[in-house]
């Protein structure tokens, strides 16, 4: 009898837990049923799936990797790129960018909360010193893989206004326009990017069509552009699923192990079975 009662108690408990889980699941479903995908580089350009028109999603994402596979609206969330310092084949109305600052969660507060221009003390010279903060925000900051030791933080980040980048004259550059900063050193690539033959653009193919331009940091990690021994500007990413094998093939190199009609007959056992 005791045993039975215990059993019943257990069942009640289980049911209660199940109900709680169910409720939690429901609230989760109502609260944030959002699908978060990434565009070019993982963890750098997140995009939340939504409907831009009835039946038309802003993006379709890969079930395998979470990468965006298809844009319903290529201009969703973009703004005019603004003037570039050097003229190129574009008009500001046609060239759109997606603001980077929305992706950088700390950018809004770092300029006011800590770095107010006076404190912490502004470095007197440009001699690199050991970084004591920010390893948590920028995990790769202690091991800067950019410039092979020839540059440091304040070559790109503004000395007093920390939510801005800096140009050669000490003027501020918005995080939304990193190309103005990167172009300081990477001239030929910058030139190709302006011409539309480096980097990624989506939208209309016509020369005077509206395009969303992807800016440098959407694809490249500025703190780790070398990727160690790979020495490649683009991080390695997981690939999409392989195509299905032709019907009747068990694996891609089946014949290597079992022989083939024209190859060695030694391992070709299946045909006789």
């Amino acid at each position: 009898m005791d045993f039975k009662r215990e059993d019943i108690m257990n069942r009640v408990e289980i049911r209660a837990i199940a109900t709680m889980l169910f409720l939690a699941g429901m609230s989760g479903a109502y609260g944030e049923e959002e699908v978060v995908c990434y565009e070019s580089r993982k963890d750098a350009s997140k995009v939340v799936q939504k409907e831009v028109e009835p039946g038309l999603p802003n993006v379709v994402c890969s079930p395998v990797t979470g990468a965006v596979l298809w844009w319903g609206d290529p201009y969703d969330g973009t703004e005019a790129m603004g003037e570039m310092p050097i003229e190129a084949d574009y008009s500001t109305a046609e060239a759109l960018v997606k603001p980077r600052e929305e992706q950088l969660t700390l950018i809004q507060i770092c300029g006011v909360a800590c770095h107010n221009g006076v404190f912490p003390p502004v470095p007197k010279d440009k001699n690199p010193r050991k970084l004591t903060m920010h390893q948590d925000i920028v995990p790769d900051s202690m091991d800067l893989q950019h410039g092979r030791g020839a540059i440091w933080c304040l070559d790109c980040h503004h000395t007093t206004t920390r939510n801005k980048l800096v140009d050669n004259f000490g003027k501020e550059i918005s995080f939304n326009q990193p190309q103005k900063l990167c172009g300081k050193c990477h001239g030929p690539v910058y030139r190709d990017w302006r011409e539309g033959i480096h980097g990624k653009r989506i939208g209309e193919w016509a020369t005077d069509g509206t395009k969303r331009w992807f800016v440098c940091t959407e694809c490249h990690n500025p703190h780790d552009v070398q990727h160690g021994a790979r020495n490649s500007g683009f991080a390695a990413i997981p690939p999409e699923a392989a195509p299905k094998l032709p019907k009747g093939m068990e694996n891609a190199d089946h014949e290597r192990h079992h022989g083939s009609a024209s190859g060695s007959a030694a391992g070709d056992g299946d045909a006789h079975e």
Binding site: E39, S40, R41, A67, V68, L69, W70, W71, P74, G196, I197, H198, G199, K200, R201, I202, G203, E204, W205, A206, T207, G209, F214, C219, F234, I237
Partner: peptide, 23 residues
């Protein structure tokens, strides 16, 4: 309709380019 092909837009490294050969 003026839009880039789907494969051009999706390429994460910008390796794919498309346009009018007569322009």
């Amino acid at each position: 309709q003026g839009r880039y092909p789907a494969c051009v837009e999706v390429c994460p490294v910008g390796a794919r380019k498309f346009g009018n050969l007569l322009d």
